[in-house]
C-alpha cells in the first residue's frame, strides 16, 4: 500500500476485528500478579474501571514494569509518591498503583497520518481507540506497518 494513501485513510477504514476483540485489558483493582501475567505475552495492558466495563482509566506498558523490576532509585529531588512504588518493597499492589492515568487516545474518525503524528509527539507506539470514554480497539505502529506492507 502507498504510504501517502495510508496516511489519508481513517482508522475505521484500516481496522480489522482482531484489533477490537483481542485487547489486553485488566480492571484497575486487578492484582499486580494478573498484570504481570498479561505482560509476559503483550507489551502493554489497558486498564478499565471494573470487570465487564470498558471505561478506559489507564495504561501499563513494558516500560512501567521495567521500572518496577529494576532496583528502585530515589531521584535526586524527591516529590510525590511515584518513586516509592516498587515490587520489591510491596508498595505496588494493584493495577491502579502503577498505571499511567492520563492516556492519549484516538477515535475511529481520525486519519492514520494524524494518529501517527500524535504518536510521534507523545512518544508512544500505540493508542487506544476510544468512543464515549470506552475503549473499542487499539492502533499500534506494528499494525500500521503490517498494513503498509500488505501483510494483513
Amino acid at each position: 500500500m502507498n504510504l501517502k494513501k495510508l496516511q489519508q485513510q481513517k482508522i475505521k477504514d484500516i481496522l480489522d476485528e482482531k484489533q477490537k476483540w483481542s485487547l489486553p485489558i485488566v480492571e484497575k483493582d486487578a492484582s499486580i500478579k494478573k498484570v504481570l501475567a498479561i505482560l509476559t505475552g503483550r507489551d502493554h495492558v489497558w486498564v478499565v474501571e471494573k470487570k465487564g466495563s470498558k471505561k478506559l482509566c489507564g495504561v501499563i506498558t513494558e516500560s512501567d514494569i521495567l521500572h518496577l523490576l529494576a532496583p528502585p532509585r530515589v531521584p535526586r529531588y524527591t516529590f510525590g509518591k511515584r518513586y516509592s512504588i516498587s515490587l520489591l518493597y510491596k508498595t505496588a499492589r494493584k493495577a491502579k498503583d502503577i498505571m499511567c492515568k492520563r492516556v492519549a487516545r484516538c477515535s475511529l474518525e481520525d486519519k492514520v497520518g494524524d494518529t501517527l503524528t500524535k504518536m510521534v509527539n507523545s512518544g508512544l507506539r500505540r493508542l487506544p481507540i476510544v468512543e464515549n470514554d470506552e475503549i473499542i480497539g487499539e492502533i499500534t505502529v506494528h499494525y500500521i506497518l503490517q498494513k503498509l506492507l500488505g501483510k494483513i
Binding site: P72, V74, T78, Y83, S84, S86, Y89, K90, T91
Partner: peptide, 11 residues
Amino acid sequence: VRTLMEMNALH
C-alpha cells in the same frame, strides 16, 4: 524513604 527501603518497611 531510602532508610525505609533498607529496612523493608516502605509498605
